[in-house]
Design a protein around this nucleic acid. Structure first.
Lengths: 108, 108
DNA sequence: TACTTATATATGAAAACGGAAATAAAACAG
DNA sequence: CTGTTTTATTTCCGTTTTCATATATAAGTA
Protein backbone atom coordinates (compact mmCIF):
# COMPACT_ATOMS: atom_id res chain seq x y z
CA UNK A 1 0.00 0.00 0.00
CA UNK A 2 3.03 2.27 0.39
CA UNK A 3 1.84 3.68 3.71
CA UNK A 4 3.46 7.07 4.23
CA UNK A 5 5.90 6.89 7.10
CA UNK A 6 4.57 9.72 9.22
CA UNK A 7 6.07 10.69 12.56
CA UNK A 8 3.93 10.44 15.68
CA UNK A 9 3.09 14.14 15.57
CA UNK A 10 1.71 14.02 12.06
CA UNK A 11 -0.18 10.85 12.92
CA UNK A 12 -2.18 12.37 15.76
CA UNK A 13 -2.69 15.64 13.89
CA UNK A 14 -5.61 14.06 12.06
CA UNK A 15 -8.94 14.21 13.95
CA UNK A 16 -10.21 10.96 12.44
CA UNK A 17 -7.15 9.09 13.69
CA UNK A 18 -7.57 10.55 17.16
CA UNK A 19 -11.19 9.41 17.15
CA UNK A 20 -10.09 5.92 16.18
CA UNK A 21 -7.63 5.82 19.07
CA UNK A 22 -10.37 7.02 21.37
CA UNK A 23 -12.70 4.25 20.21
CA UNK A 24 -9.99 1.65 20.76
CA UNK A 25 -9.84 2.52 24.45
CA UNK A 26 -13.36 1.05 24.68
CA UNK A 27 -12.96 -2.08 22.63
CA UNK A 28 -11.06 -4.00 19.99
CA UNK A 29 -12.51 -3.44 16.52
CA UNK A 30 -11.90 -4.77 13.04
CA UNK A 31 -11.88 -2.39 10.06
CA UNK A 32 -15.58 -2.80 9.40
CA UNK A 33 -16.43 -2.29 13.04
CA UNK A 34 -14.48 0.94 13.08
CA UNK A 35 -15.96 2.14 9.79
CA UNK A 36 -19.48 1.75 11.19
CA UNK A 37 -18.61 4.47 13.69
CA UNK A 38 -17.52 6.95 11.04
CA UNK A 39 -18.93 8.60 7.99
CA UNK A 40 -15.89 7.77 5.92
CA UNK A 41 -15.49 4.70 3.75
CA UNK A 42 -13.78 1.46 4.74
CA UNK A 43 -10.76 2.08 2.51
CA UNK A 44 -10.27 5.37 4.34
CA UNK A 45 -10.36 3.64 7.72
CA UNK A 46 -8.01 0.99 6.42
CA UNK A 47 -5.46 3.63 5.46
CA UNK A 48 -5.69 5.35 8.82
CA UNK A 49 -5.17 2.07 10.63
CA UNK A 50 -2.16 1.33 8.48
CA UNK A 51 -0.69 4.69 9.42
CA UNK A 52 -1.48 4.21 13.11
CA UNK A 53 0.11 0.79 13.06
CA UNK A 54 3.27 1.97 11.33
CA UNK A 55 3.67 4.74 13.90
CA UNK A 56 3.22 2.34 16.82
CA UNK A 57 -0.19 3.43 18.07
CA UNK A 58 -2.07 0.30 17.09
CA UNK A 59 -1.44 -3.43 17.01
CA UNK A 60 -3.28 -5.70 14.59
CA UNK A 61 -4.34 -9.27 15.22
CA UNK A 62 -5.29 -11.06 12.03
CA UNK A 63 -8.02 -13.64 12.47
CA UNK A 64 -8.83 -15.12 9.10
CA UNK A 65 -9.57 -12.23 6.80
CA UNK A 66 -10.44 -9.92 9.67
CA UNK A 67 -7.97 -7.58 11.33
CA UNK A 68 -8.67 -6.69 14.93
CA UNK A 69 -7.07 -3.51 16.17
CA UNK A 70 -5.95 -2.73 19.71
CA UNK A 71 -3.99 0.14 21.18
CA UNK A 72 -0.21 -0.05 21.27
CA UNK A 73 1.59 2.04 23.89
CA UNK A 74 4.75 2.70 21.89
CA UNK A 75 3.41 5.68 19.96
CA UNK A 76 2.14 7.32 23.11
CA UNK A 77 5.46 6.84 24.84
CA UNK A 78 7.24 8.59 22.00
CA UNK A 79 4.90 11.54 22.38
CA UNK A 80 5.31 11.53 26.14
CA UNK A 81 9.08 11.67 25.74
CA UNK A 82 8.84 14.76 23.60
CA UNK A 83 6.61 16.54 26.10
CA UNK A 84 8.74 15.54 29.07
CA UNK A 85 11.65 17.50 27.59
CA UNK A 86 9.56 20.63 27.98
CA UNK A 87 8.37 19.58 31.43
CA UNK A 88 11.98 19.90 32.50
CA UNK A 89 11.95 23.45 31.18
CA UNK A 90 9.01 24.39 33.42
CA UNK A 91 10.51 22.63 36.41
CA UNK A 92 13.82 24.44 36.12
CA UNK A 93 11.95 27.68 35.64
CA UNK A 94 10.16 27.07 38.93
CA UNK A 95 13.44 26.31 40.64
CA UNK A 96 14.93 29.58 39.45
CA UNK A 97 11.90 31.40 40.77
CA UNK A 98 12.28 29.62 44.09
CA UNK A 99 15.91 30.64 44.38
CA UNK A 100 15.02 34.23 43.60
CA UNK A 101 12.31 34.25 46.24
CA UNK A 102 14.64 32.71 48.82
CA UNK A 103 17.21 35.41 48.23
CA UNK A 104 14.59 38.08 48.69
CA UNK A 105 13.24 36.62 51.92
CA UNK A 106 16.80 36.43 53.28
CA UNK A 107 16.88 40.20 53.14
CA UNK A 108 13.73 40.60 55.23
CA UNK B 1 -3.04 38.15 9.44
CA UNK B 2 -5.92 35.66 9.46
CA UNK B 3 -3.83 33.07 11.28
CA UNK B 4 -5.39 29.67 10.72
CA UNK B 5 -6.87 28.46 13.99
CA UNK B 6 -5.08 25.13 14.23
CA UNK B 7 -5.55 22.79 17.17
CA UNK B 8 -2.54 21.89 19.32
CA UNK B 9 -2.01 18.63 17.44
CA UNK B 10 -1.77 20.28 14.06
CA UNK B 11 0.47 22.94 15.54
CA UNK B 12 3.16 20.54 16.72
CA UNK B 13 2.85 18.39 13.58
CA UNK B 14 5.15 20.81 11.78
CA UNK B 15 8.90 20.15 12.32
CA UNK B 16 9.82 23.83 12.00
CA UNK B 17 7.43 24.75 14.78
CA UNK B 18 8.80 22.01 17.01
CA UNK B 19 12.31 23.34 16.36
CA UNK B 20 11.18 26.81 17.32
CA UNK B 21 9.74 25.49 20.59
CA UNK B 22 12.99 23.64 21.22
CA UNK B 23 15.00 26.83 20.67
CA UNK B 24 12.78 28.73 23.06
CA UNK B 25 13.73 26.39 25.90
CA UNK B 26 17.23 27.88 25.64
CA UNK B 27 16.41 31.53 25.34
CA UNK B 28 13.91 34.21 24.50
CA UNK B 29 14.19 35.28 20.86
CA UNK B 30 12.65 37.92 18.65
CA UNK B 31 11.53 37.02 15.13
CA UNK B 32 14.86 37.95 13.57
CA UNK B 33 16.77 36.00 16.17
CA UNK B 34 14.70 32.94 15.45
CA UNK B 35 15.01 33.36 11.69
CA UNK B 36 18.80 33.38 11.97
CA UNK B 37 18.57 29.81 13.22
CA UNK B 38 16.56 28.60 10.23
CA UNK B 39 16.83 28.50 6.50
CA UNK B 40 13.38 29.92 6.05
CA UNK B 41 12.52 33.56 5.61
CA UNK B 42 11.44 35.94 8.35
CA UNK B 43 7.84 36.09 7.13
CA UNK B 44 7.73 32.30 7.43
CA UNK B 45 8.97 32.44 11.03
CA UNK B 46 6.52 35.23 11.76
CA UNK B 47 3.64 33.06 10.55
CA UNK B 48 4.76 30.09 12.63
CA UNK B 49 5.03 32.24 15.74
CA UNK B 50 1.56 33.60 15.14
CA UNK B 51 0.23 30.04 14.96
CA UNK B 52 2.16 29.00 18.07
CA UNK B 53 0.86 32.00 19.97
CA UNK B 54 -2.76 31.40 18.98
CA UNK B 55 -2.51 27.78 20.11
CA UNK B 56 -1.03 28.78 23.48
CA UNK B 57 2.53 27.52 23.04
CA UNK B 58 4.22 30.90 22.94
CA UNK B 59 3.83 34.25 24.66
CA UNK B 60 4.98 37.46 23.02
CA UNK B 61 6.44 40.48 24.76
CA UNK B 62 6.53 43.54 22.56
CA UNK B 63 9.46 45.82 23.22
CA UNK B 64 9.34 48.71 20.81
CA UNK B 65 9.15 47.20 17.35
CA UNK B 66 10.62 43.92 18.50
CA UNK B 67 8.57 40.94 19.64
CA UNK B 68 10.27 38.62 22.08
CA UNK B 69 8.93 35.08 22.24
CA UNK B 70 8.90 32.81 25.29
CA UNK B 71 7.29 29.45 25.92
CA UNK B 72 3.74 29.30 27.24
CA UNK B 73 2.73 26.21 29.18
CA UNK B 74 -0.95 26.21 28.14
CA UNK B 75 -0.45 24.42 24.84
CA UNK B 76 1.63 21.71 26.46
CA UNK B 77 -0.96 21.18 29.18
CA UNK B 78 -3.63 20.67 26.55
CA UNK B 79 -1.47 18.01 24.93
CA UNK B 80 -0.74 16.40 28.27
CA UNK B 81 -4.46 16.19 29.03
CA UNK B 82 -5.09 14.29 25.82
CA UNK B 83 -2.34 11.81 26.54
CA UNK B 84 -3.37 11.33 30.15
CA UNK B 85 -6.72 9.99 28.97
CA UNK B 86 -4.84 7.11 27.35
CA UNK B 87 -2.58 6.72 30.36
CA UNK B 88 -5.69 5.72 32.27
CA UNK B 89 -6.35 3.09 29.64
CA UNK B 90 -2.95 1.49 30.24
CA UNK B 91 -3.32 1.69 33.99
CA UNK B 92 -6.71 -0.02 34.00
CA UNK B 93 -5.34 -2.63 31.63
CA UNK B 94 -2.59 -3.39 34.14
CA UNK B 95 -5.16 -3.62 36.95
CA UNK B 96 -7.20 -6.14 34.98
CA UNK B 97 -4.06 -8.19 34.42
CA UNK B 98 -3.32 -8.04 38.13
CA UNK B 99 -6.79 -9.29 39.02
CA UNK B 100 -6.46 -12.13 36.55
CA UNK B 101 -3.12 -13.14 37.98
CA UNK B 102 -4.47 -13.02 41.55
CA UNK B 103 -7.32 -15.33 40.64
CA UNK B 104 -4.91 -17.79 39.10
CA UNK B 105 -2.60 -17.83 42.10
CA UNK B 106 -5.60 -18.43 44.37
CA UNK B 107 -6.07 -21.75 42.65
CA UNK B 108 -2.54 -22.94 43.36
C1' DT C 1 -19.89 -19.81 -6.79
C1' DA C 2 -21.46 -15.92 -4.22
C1' DC C 3 -20.54 -13.05 -0.32
C1' DT C 4 -17.71 -10.65 2.99
C1' DT C 5 -13.56 -8.32 4.56
C1' DA C 6 -9.93 -5.71 3.37
C1' DT C 7 -6.37 -3.45 0.44
C1' DA C 8 -4.45 -1.17 -3.94
C1' DT C 9 -4.67 2.36 -7.41
C1' DA C 10 -5.97 6.47 -9.58
C1' DT C 11 -8.07 10.82 -9.04
C1' DG C 12 -9.77 15.13 -7.26
C1' DA C 13 -10.38 18.68 -3.68
C1' DA C 14 -8.64 21.18 0.09
C1' DA C 15 -5.14 22.79 3.05
C1' DA C 16 -0.38 23.69 4.60
C1' DC C 17 4.13 25.46 3.82
C1' DG C 18 7.26 28.78 2.11
C1' DG C 19 8.88 32.64 -0.81
C1' DA C 20 8.66 37.42 -2.94
C1' DA C 21 7.00 41.86 -2.84
C1' DA C 22 4.40 45.37 -0.61
C1' DT C 23 3.07 47.57 3.61
C1' DA C 24 3.36 49.24 8.53
C1' DA C 25 5.56 50.98 12.31
C1' DA C 26 9.25 52.17 15.35
C1' DA C 27 14.17 53.82 15.98
C1' DC C 28 17.52 56.91 14.55
C1' DA C 29 20.81 60.03 11.87
C1' DG C 30 21.39 64.29 9.80
C1' DC D 1 11.29 67.03 10.84
C1' DT D 2 12.60 64.31 6.81
C1' DG D 3 14.65 60.28 5.07
C1' DT D 4 16.60 55.83 6.02
C1' DT D 5 17.16 51.59 8.36
C1' DT D 6 15.37 47.91 11.08
C1' DT D 7 11.73 44.77 12.62
C1' DA D 8 7.79 42.53 11.53
C1' DT D 9 3.44 41.53 9.11
C1' DT D 10 0.28 41.17 5.14
C1' DT D 11 -0.94 39.64 0.64
C1' DC D 12 -0.49 36.87 -3.20
C1' DC D 13 1.23 32.97 -5.48
C1' DG D 14 2.97 28.30 -6.53
C1' DT D 15 4.26 23.77 -4.86
C1' DT D 16 3.52 19.96 -2.21
C1' DT D 17 1.02 17.10 0.82
C1' DT D 18 -2.93 15.17 2.83
C1' DC D 19 -7.48 13.32 2.94
C1' DA D 20 -11.27 10.98 0.96
C1' DT D 21 -13.78 8.67 -2.73
C1' DA D 22 -14.67 5.39 -6.43
C1' DT D 23 -13.30 1.52 -8.74
C1' DA D 24 -10.88 -2.61 -9.08
C1' DT D 25 -8.50 -6.41 -7.03
C1' DA D 26 -7.27 -10.03 -3.52
C1' DA D 27 -8.31 -13.33 -0.19
C1' DG D 28 -10.99 -15.80 3.20
C1' DT D 29 -15.81 -17.98 4.08
C1' DA D 30 -20.24 -20.21 3.50
Amino acid sequence: MATPNLDVFQVIADPSRRQILHLLTKNSYNINGLAENFKMSRPAVSKHISILQTAGFVTINEIGRERYCTLNQNGFIELQNWISYFDNFWISKLKKLEITLNKKTENL
